[in-house]
Computed example of a mutant assay.
Amino acid sequence: MPHLRRPRRLAVLTVAASLLVLPLVALAPLTAGAAPAPTAAGVGLADKGGDADPGDDPANNTKADLNLVTGSLPSLQAGQEGWVSLIWSAGTDVCDVEVTTKSKDVVVTYPTNTGDFSSLYINNALAETNTDYTAFKLTAPAAAGSYPVEFEATFTRLKDSATLKKSDNLVHKDVDNCSGSSGKVKQTINLPVTAASGAAVSLQTPSLQLKAGAPSWVALAFKGNAPGLENFRVTVTAPAGFEVVYPGDGTSSGLAQGTKLGVGVTDSTGVRITAVTAAAGTYQLPVKATWTGGSFTGTVTVKVVP
């Protein structure tokens, strides 16, 4: 049965995330190499017994493995989630690469287009000595520490070295006949988790400027510094001469990206503020954020101009 390429992973990775660690080397597609230069007799080097696929050793076809190059994971704050990547190098030509994880404490989410595993970014095949990466979203536990995460890769070693060459552009080429001996490798990497510090929430919008008498929708940004900021809502107290309106004429405003403010994530909420009768000058408007089990109070400086 023909081997079908799965959708690319870039579309998944560009979804908003609190952390994105992508290796630059993996972002550049493998480009097709130039054909062997003809000899004086007009015959290519490969036709005279030269190596048409440098770096490919047919002796590895039944024994070599996929090798995990990445040896560490980036540190996350307690409760933080983010996309991370692992770089892999092929010890032989491989296909049908699938990587799964096990962890007692760290929650792992796979790209939506693969579901219960992660595969390589460019293609799920990889030529000998080439590199590519897999992506995972990790959610750190609520307590600081070092937590082991096991990564297991399964793959098929291509029995025919001619099927896949190092110079093949796997953005456009698929391995239609993925057959050979099966392989499996496991490696455990610890995820370092640091404790949250400071206030659970910080207001990232210290000041605003409004034109007197003109209704203005403004964005107030908040950063989450602790886990558990669910059902996040914001209110602004209007002093004399001001009017505050919330979306949908509600009693408070929610976040732009959802109901939860994640650890290390900055999100904003919108309110309409009008300096109805307030004279030109500088004012302090109280701002309050609430979430399940907690609250934050701050102020935003508003400058009213004629």
Rank of each mutant, 00 (worst) to 15 (best):
A221T: 05
S18L: 01
K288I: 00
N231C: 02
P239D: 10
G71A: 02
T154N: 14
L86D: 10
R8P: 04
A221D: 11
D56P: 00
L27F: 08
T114E: 10
P29N: 04
V171Y: 13
L229H: 03
P111V: 01
P227I: 12
T100P: 04
A32M: 13
G145I: 01
R272T: 10
A196N: 15
D105T: 13
V15S: 07
A127H: 08
S207E: 14
A153Q: 10
A214K: 15
G281N: 03
Q187H: 14
S146V: 03
T194C: 00
G250H: 06
G82Q: 07
G213Y: 06
T101R: 06
D160Y: 05
V69S: 06
T31D: 01
K165W: 07
P54R: 12
D132F: 14
I122G: 10
L13Q: 07
G33K: 13
L261Y: 07
M1G: 12
S161L: 05
L4S: 12
K104Y: 08
V108L: 14
S179A: 15
D56T: 12
V25H: 08
G258R: 09
A140S: 00
R6W: 08
I122Y: 11
N124M: 10
S253E: 05
P227F: 14
Y121I: 11
V108M: 07
G42S: 03
S119W: 07
V25M: 12
G198Y: 03
G264E: 08
A40Q: 14
G254N: 09
Y147Q: 02
D47Q: 15
G254M: 11
L208W: 11
G298E: 15
T235C: 03
V234E: 03
M1F: 12
R272M: 13
T292P: 07
P38K: 14
K104A: 15
A238R: 03
S179H: 05
G293A: 09
V271R: 10
G79E: 14
A40S: 15
D267V: 03
R233P: 00
A226W: 11
A238L: 08
L164W: 03
T251C: 00
A26Q: 09
K63D: 02
W291C: 06
Q204T: 12
L27Q: 13
R6Q: 13
